[in-house]
Structure formats: structure tokens, C-alpha cells
Design a protein around this nucleic acid. Structure first.
Lengths: 158, 158
DNA sequence: ATTGAAAAACATTCAGA
DNA sequence: TCTGAATGTTTTTCAAT
């Protein structure tokens, strides 16, 4: 999936824009919006899913509603052979870790992690990070307030 | 919305888990899964939306499909009066900026930004960031590879 | 790639418990 | 809160283009 045969036309982009903003929009509504038959829309949506353009439909849940009020970024330095991915595999397997990026520069990895509070963050660092022998050092940045947080992409009109 | 009258019971958490994993699941399927009538599920879902627990339904689109292959984090130092939110307002208004966090420590803000390439990143920094007079300095971290990226929360069973 | 028709499944409302 | 019945709508398939 997601090969070179993915030429997204104006209609595909329109569908993506609608579904990115409201994943629970009905095919019928999409069809009305873009002036196509519902069955045609369904075909296109299925193709977008199957090509890996649409990766998932998800409900964005308010972390505060689940009392998950701690958000932190951890910059991690690791001493491992280039191409070795043991560290990232371990980091990605931690459920509270939302993002793991391999970054350029001094710090090898940047990890985004969401927990209930500072105690549970420390708990994860103790129980998980300290068990990863390749980790040389960590630098934790605590988020005081999140002003904007969205995964939505800028989708061009054409 | 999202007051103190949000006591999420086991059923609510089950619904949230299902919808977080697949926002396009039908009410009927949720009803079957949790052993309730579809109309009852609908009521609960509407209440979760109205209380602000469910913030949005969104399709996660593969950035590569839109040729958006540059991801960067920018740490921004700003000299502004505490409580002044002009800088964050400006940052959040940039469409390519997916996240703006006010963080503890030396760097005041952490911004996540997704663009086509390094040229378009530089373009945004020139056209937007350099116009914000309160910004003292920026430190950009380029993502080489994203290993994990999800906004999904850990939802407890009860 | 798209349509339109047809059947099955679904969403939504509302009275009643 | 929840159910169950009722109605209108949607989804999905498929033959045809």
C-alpha cells in the first residue's frame, strides 16, 4: 500500500477533507456534498483505505475526561549501532507513549508521553526507560498547557 | 462541558475504547458488543459528545500520501508578560502547526509542524515566525523517521 | 470509474418502564 | 437510563455503462 499509484484527484482530496473533519459523516452526505452517487463514494473511500491513504478513523477523546493531565516530551540519547531498532521498539511498546521520533542532532529520540500525573510519569520512567540498557541519558520537558493539538493535515484544494 | 458531573462508568469507557479504535463503527455494532439496545447507545454517545469527552471524529491521513514528508519540532523562547497569549495565538493560527505547547523550563513553547520539505519549513519560519516580535530565539529539531504516532489514550477497563 | 435499483441493515425518535 | 417498535435513511451489492 501507499505506492506510487496513488494519484489523488480533486474528488479524493475533497473526500479526505470531509472525513478528516468528521470521520462519522455518512457516505450519503459525502455524496451530496461532492455531487456523486453514494455507491461511487463508497468505492473511492474503500480504495483510499486500501491504499493506506486513510490509516484509521478515530475518536479524539479529551484527556482531562480520563484524568490524564500530564503530558511530557522526553529527549533520549542512546548508544546503539546505527540501524539497530531495539530501543525504538521498546519505547513504542509502552502504551502511554503516543509518539516516538528518531531525530537529527544530539538527542537520538523524541518521545511524547501522556500519563495521569508526575508520579505515574516517574513510574513509567523507572519501570520501562531504566530497563533499556542502550539509553545513555534523558531530558524531560513538562507541558504546562496545551494551546493547540491536532493531527489534521493541510489538505490542498487541488 | 467537561465539568465535574462526568462520571464515566464501565459502559462509557467501553464505548470510548471502541470509538477511539474505529470512529466509523455503527451504533448497532457498539450495541451488540456491549449488550445494549442501539437507542441506548446513541443516547450515551450523544451525551459523551455533548459533555466534551469525545472532542472530534477524525480520519488519520497518511502524510506521505500528501507528500508532507517534513516533520519538525521547534522550541521557541519568547519575552512576553506572563499571561500574555499573543504569541501562542499567532502560532496556533498557522495551519501547518499541529501542536503548540507551553512548556516548563528555558524554552517557552514547543511547536510541532508538518510541511512538504525543508524549503516549505523555512518558508513558514520566514513568513510567520520572524513576524512575531516577542520571539527571542528558536531551536528546530528535524524528525528523520517517525516510529510511532498516535493520539490514542490508554483507556482503563474500569 | 460511475450510476441506479433493490434488499438488508442502520439511525433516530418516542412512548413506556 | 434503558428498551422496543416504528419510520425514514443509509449501506452495500451488482449489473450495466
Amino acid at each position: 500500500m501507499l505506492d506510487n499509484d496513488l494519484i489523488l484527484d480533486k474528488t479524493d482530496l475533497h473526500i479526505l477533507r470531509l472525513m478528516q473533519d468528521n470521520a462519522r459523516i455518512s457516505n450519503a452526505d459525502i455524496a451530496r456534498e461532492i455531487g456523486m452517487a453514494p455507491s461511487g463514494v463508497l468505492e473511492r473511500v474503500k480504495k483510499l483505505e486500501q491504499k493506506g491513504v486513510i490509516m484509521q478513523y478515530t475518536a479524539a477523546i479529551n484527556p482531562a475526561a480520563l484524568k490524564q493531565n500530564m503530558l511530557a516530551f522526553i529527549a533520549i540519547k542512546a548508544n546503539e549501532a546505527p540501524g539497530n531498532i531495539e530501543t525504538t521498539k521498546y519505547l513504542a511498546a509502552i502504551p502511554e507513549v503516543q509518539e516516538v521520533h528518531h531525530v537529527a542532532g544530539d538527542d537520538c529520540y523524541l518521545v511524547k508521553i501522556r500519563t495521569y500525573d508526575s508520579a505515574s510519569l516517574v513510574g513509567i520512567m523507572r519501570n520501562h526507560l531504566s530497563k533499556i540498557s542502550s539509553i545513555v541519558s534523558t531530558r524531560t520537558t513538562i507541558v504546562l498547557e496545551t494551546v493547540k493539538e491536532q493531527q489534521q493535515l493541510v489538505i490542498p484544494k487541488a
